[in-house]
């Protein structure tokens, strides 16, 4: 929706980071020398729906860091489609930290630009995902079409809104959740799952490039009966557009683990490793875990889980590893050129 504007703001950030560069270097050096630490900056490159979450976490971490070390932190955040953000980092955006929608995008940064080691995901607990989410069905208030599960989406006349899996990380989770449901039905097989996906996408009249664009199409243009959505975005949409929608939990969905990582080459060059690693560990702290629950992500920590237990419905969730053999394989089978998603559009 704000493609160009976001792009601009990221340029702005780039410029800001470049200007702040020398100050940061000096600050890091002094901090190590035990002097009065100079202010430092940190850039967190993230994806679309985490904007509000990280705004609060950044403030909390800056406060925590100031109390602990006396150093003033300015944490900048950049948001956009997950794949696009990964590409910016590969092309030189100086991200100390990446917090993206799927592991595949960070894998690409590791593989294409060698900015962090290939085993990055095992460096932090729980697959480096301090919070999780899932895919739910968002329907119009009162659920006029009585949609209860994935199977209802292919009933005659139903229109389904989802972004393009080729350009949107969220859309890939949508697609895989639908596939997993079809696969796990009695007598399910990959061939039957593909047939279901093909039928499902015949009910999709528009493929926006990102999740926010799709939400606009569904909420403001009034197109479609069901919107396949991140759970956190589904909660957000009712805050943003008023109570115009109902959330329907399908009988089975997918565990989305948006991972986080320190970008080694960049933090070493900018001497921000301690700050950056502290930031990621902070995400697992009770305080930050509570914030993730508040911003509609499913927390990992026991304390926050107990607090938000009533908010997030427990449903069976498959994972990318147990059902799809990991992201690299899923990407190749389903979303690469000539993959299943291309195939279902061939006449």
């Amino acid at each position: 929706m704000t493609h160009d504007i976001r792009h601009l703001s990221r340029r702005g950030l780039l410029g800001g980071a470049a200007l702040a560069g020398p100050a940061v270097l000096a600050g890091g050096g002094l901090a190590m020398a035990q002097g009065a630490p100079k202010p430092a900056t940190l850039l967190n490159v993230s994806y679309d729906p985490t904007r509000e979450l990280y705004k609060e976490i950044n403030a909390a971490y800056a406060k925590f860091w100031k109390e602990k070390t006396g150093q003033t932190l300015t944490i900048q955040q950049s948001h956009g489609g997950s794949g696009k953000q990964a590409r910016s980092v590969i092309d030189g955006l100086q991200a100390d930290i990446v917090t993206l929608a799927l592991a595949y995008d960070i894998d690409e940064i590791a593989q294409k630009a060698k900015l962090l080691p290939a085993n990055w995901q095992s460096r932090l607990p729980q697959n480096s995902a301090p919070y999780t989410s899932t895919i739910v069905l968002l329907v119009r208030k009162g659920n006029p079409w009585k949609i209860r599960d994935w199977g209802d989406l292919v009933k005659p006349g139903i229109e389904v809104i989802t972004p393009n899996p080729k350009t949107s990380g969220g859309a890939r989770w949508n697609y895989l959740a639908a596939w997993a449901w079809a696969l796990k039905q009695p007598g399910g097989s990959p061939a039957k799952a593909e047939a279901f996906i093909k039928e499902l996408f015949q009910h999709v009249p528009i493929l926006d490039t990102g999740a926010r664009g799709s939400l606009t199409t569904f909420a403001q243009r009034g197109v479609g009966d069901v919107f396949l959505s991140w759970e956190n975005e589904a909660f957000l949409s009712n805050e943003e557009f008023g109570p115009k929608f109902d959330i329907v939990y399908p009988s089975l969905s997918i565990l989305a683990e948006p991972p986080v990582a320190v970008v080694d080459k960049i933090v070493d060059r900018r001497k921000t490793r301690t700050i950056a690693e502290g930031y990621l560990n902070f995400l697992y702290s009770p305080l930050a875990q509570d914030l993730t629950g508040k911003h509609h992500y499913r927390p990992r920590g026991a304390q926050a889980q107990a607090k938000y237990a009533g908010k997030f419905k427990k449903i069976p969730l498959v994972t990318i590893d147990d059902t799809f053999g990991g992201w690299t394989k899923a990407q190749k089978t389903h979303f690469a050129d000539g993959g299943v998603f291309d195939r279902i559009y061939r006449p």
Partner: peptide, 28 residues
């Protein structure tokens, strides 16, 4: 910019060539 919102972007139907370029970039 102006087309991507109104096109619908369905493969083989309303997908413009510049979007294909973006899609290919998205796959690195």
């Amino acid at each position: 910019g102006s087309v991507i919102f109104i096109a619908g972007n369905l493969p083989m139907v309303s997908e413009i060539a510049p979007l294909l370029i973006i899609i290919k970039l998205e796959q690195f």
